[in-house]
Design a binder for these strands. Structure first.
Lengths: 193, 193
DNA sequence: AAAAAGCCTTGACATTTGTCAATGAAAAGG
DNA sequence: CCTTTTCATTGACAAATGTCAAGGCTTTTT
């Protein structure tokens, strides 16, 4: 347990074994079955989840009952409704498992305690969020400046693993397209070769 | 000089006067005239810029010479090509002044030094980026899940100051629309009241 | 003051994307 | 093994957005 979590942590901020043990006491393991919720829209998000195994997604549901996928998370990634987590306001996202999953949770209380007692944890979080911010900025840039086909191509090139593991209608949702539109975009691409 | 910078800093992380003086030695003031570049696409981004006065924008130019605005920054905001800044790779964004501006720059060298010597600086940066991440996630969520009109309404409600200061075609660009489309969306909204 | 440039709007038309409905294939569940 | 659900695709049509061109108004520059 926690192998991948500490591997990723050490890549960002090297830890001694003692530090590792100390941090471990703040972590909570959790298993999720496929389709189970980690967070439901309206609840307060109580933890950041690191994915040791499996796949999750965060999404919103609009007034027409259409789902819009905000984020995928597979092994080595982290997922949460950060705003709700930090402010304790009701979440606007729902998070559930796309496959059976093993998670490492950092509760809000653990997070606060670690920030106080372990400077390397703050550095880890800073680097984690910085990376997430840069990735998000890239995605937004694609979204406002590229046509659907180009966005799809870049997505499959950037995240080939996700493109293979999740249903295409979810990728469409992630890109802000309907499943029909993505299907037609793919058809056009195929016809050209 | 630096009044607003330290006001915002203190709101996030309270500083003693000594700490403030220490940090001040790492800051660089800079004035920009309207239309002047802070960063040109292809150069390495050498600093994070805090806006004391004026207004800037970050944008990309696509192969059809269309500009796509990534971010606005007015008084109290921070702007940079963070990826280029942190990796020292060529910037993909251009940043220029929409109005005459006064900036506080944190160079990469100053940033590294401050991270090493001043724990409160790391906390400030962590909170800064966390806020930027949450705002960006909101924007992306709007972009993939809301129609143009609703996005525009939310934008003007969230950033009324920017909506008034910046030409409408730039707001269109920020939302991923053409100026003509935004003009028509606004017309429809006006006709309904 | 005149000229130039920037900005917003509008019309006509093209392209992209969405909606609704139907189908068949594959996967999941009992 | 059979049933049900999920998924991807396709067609016909509607709605949203983009493109191109023009005009008028304002601001900037000379």
């Amino acid at each position: 347990m926690y192998e991948l979590f500490f591997q990723k942590f050490n890549e960002k901020v090297p830890l001694t074994l003692e530090e590792q043990e100390q941090i471990k006491t703040y972590l909570t393991p959790k298993k999720l079955r496929k389709r189970q919720y980690l967070l439901q829209d309206g609840d307060v998000c109580k933890s950041i989840a690191f994915v040791e195994k499996g796949a999750l997604r965060a999404y919103t549901v609009d007034e027409n009952m259409n789902e819009h996928i905000i984020q995928f998370a597979i092994e080595g990634w982290t997922i949460s409704d950060l705003f709700s987590y930090l402010t304790a306001e009701p979440a606007t996202y729902t998070i559930d498992a796309l496959e059976d999953a093993e998670l490492v949770l950092i509760t809000r209380a653990a997070h606060d305690e670690l920030l106080k007692t372990q400077p390397k944890y703050e550095t880890y979080i800073r680097l984690l969020i910085t990376g997430a911010y840069i990735a998000l900025q890239r995605r937004l840039t694609s979204n406002i400046s590229l046509p659907a086909e180009e966005r799809y191509t870049r997505f499959t090139e950037t995240y080939p693993d996700i493109a293979q593991r999740v249903p295409q209608h979810m990728i469409a949702s992630y890109m802000g397209l309907t499943p029909e539109t993505l299907s037609r975009v793919r058809k056009k691409m195929a016809e050209r070769r």
